[in-house]
Amino acid sequence: MSLFAWVTLGVGGLTLVLGLLLLIRGPSWLKRTRPIQLGVVALSGVATYKLVAFFAIAALPVATLGAAHVELLEGAKSVEACAGCHVMWPMVNDLHDPASDSLAARHFKNRYIQGEECYHCHSGYGFNGALSAKLEGYRHLVRYTTGIYQEPIRMRGKFDTASCLNCHEGTRPFEAINSHHVASERLAEGTMSCTNCHGPAHPTRSERTPGDAHYQGLMRDPL
């Protein structure tokens, strides 16, 4: 588990302990203690209680949830995180499929990206990514957990071609193709997609439609 996961667990655990104590034992338990001497400061029972309450209700929980949020965002970069929702299983299965010719599968097969493969192209999700990408991710979360979606799922808006160009632009093979220069402005603006010539990145919508011949195979649990 990563750092922020541990932080969440640790601080959260502490919160639970303190909070349960306060809840079960009640405030009077703390308030009846004798003043505690902390150096020059003397904390009365009530003061102690209020300090503990502050940590139990405000500071620690906020820290816990903060850590949980960071963990969520950073954890969203992993392929396992994407695979957490079954509607994404086709993308993950296709990614790992050596027989597939989708862009995702080809990048994977060639080991161009080692680890966090989804994130390297859909790079808005991490902490340093675009706010809109994260917001979109949160929206996906609600849609999925509430079940308000239809298969095949569709991406809202467009994929940012900058994600392709960040790696490919400037390389010798890329620059050697004249059509890239003809298309350069549109690629930069995002009005033309790289997938237009290079094909779909993931299984097509038809393949991901329940009832399609490919659907069963694509909907295996990849983990």
């Binding site: 969440t8 909070g19 209700i57 929980p61 816990t64 949830l65 963990e71 995180a81 999925y144 957990t145």
Partner: peptide
């Protein structure tokens, strides 16, 4: 306190299970 505890429990639960 109860609200907080529930919130923290959910957060801990998520971090442990990574469930959607």
């Amino acid at each position: 306190i109860v609200l907080t505890l529930v919130a923290v429990l959910i957060a801990i639960g998520f971090v442990l299970s990574r469930n959607a």
